[in-house]
Design a protein around this nucleic acid. Structure first.
Lengths: 174, 174
DNA sequence: TGCAATGTAAAACGAACGTTTTACATAGTC
DNA sequence: GACTATGTAAAACGTTCGTTTTACATTGCA
């Protein structure tokens, strides 16, 4: 495992679990097992590190959404939450904490959400055999809702979203 | 307007718009138009102030959800977003920023979400003429999803959630 | 008139922050 | 065997934070 990869993995874990602002650089150096000098040589700054973390998480998350059906989207989310826990969307949380005012971070969040939306439209089209903008938007809302309701409702939120999506897909197919 | 009310209103605005950690006490004193000594006499601490803000927001938000139909829930959310903007659920954001580790804050968030869930179940039962746990959980996910998807999708997210809820209610009624 | 109560303005507190620098160690390369 | 790259450990930088304190003004009531 490369030094930079190790740093980014440790940073993602801490930022995700405790928040961006609440995570100090001393905790990062300790978790990454490197001196602050090395950390800054690799990452440049805390903001730049977070931008890289967002990029890494985007790739990791989007890889999970390479599926062919709407139902598999919710299965993928359930898996993700089972492994990562439910703390709400990391991208939206980060955007909120930085007020949308840190350039690299705001851009990474916007890019992720655009890719997320595109992927959902693709999956809906593949599942249905035709494009359905309205249904895709509903599936997006259900996925976003499941992510956030799971914070206090647990996996029941994902189950409910999954069942709702199944009903809406069935309806669109008829 | 009472001094404390003015303080809480100003604090809610700043915490909501810029985040809890990012909002310093100097900005709060300036926005509330009072000295830091008076602010601390009224609020006790920053954490306690946030707990009070959460209480005030809960009352304000829940008052809007005193409706009789599922569709009216989404109309109320659309109104709220039109006035307040879409930055994601203030309670979940605050909980995330404080890592769920600040007692007064974590409790206020949990209390709000419990009340929120109860209200949704009541409205679903009133609309349907009978209790429907599964539908209520789906409506909750749709409301939560609309709140968060609206951050980057705007009012289209609420429209989509509203249409999805209408379809699910119709289905439950048949 | 005098005494609490309540307020402001501003300095001061110690701690923590992101970041840089100093001083030194360890490898691998010409 | 000196040079360069790359690393650590730790002190130091200047700033900002939440909070407290000092010194003084205003007001309402006995």
């Amino acid at each position: 495992m490369d030094r930079t990869e190790k740093l980014i993995a440790a940073a993602e874990r801490l930022f995700d679990r405790h928040g961006y602002v609440a995570t100090g650089m001393d905790r990062l150096t300790q978790a990454a097992g490197m001196s602050s000098r090395t950390l800054y040589k690799h990452a440049g700054s805390k903001d730049a590190l977070m931008a890289r973390v967002l990029g890494a998480r985007d790739r990791r998350f989007m890889r999970r959404l390479e599926v062919a059906s709407v139902d598999a989207l919710f299965a993928a989310l359930a898996d993700w939450i089972r492994v990562e826990g439910a703390r709400g969307c990391f991208f939206l949380r980060t955007r909120a904490e930085t007020g949308g005012e840190v350039p690299g971070i705001a851009e990474a969040v916007a890019a992720h959400k655009a890719a997320f939306r595109t992927r959902i439209h693709e999956v809906v089209a593949a599942d249905l055999g035709r494009a359905d903008e309205a249904l895709a938007e509903q599936v997006l809302v259900l996925l976003e809702g499941a992510s956030h309701a799971a914070v206090y409702r647990g996996t029941a939120a994902v189950d409910a979203a999954r069942a709702a999506a199944a009903a809406l897909v069935e309806r669109a197919r008829a």
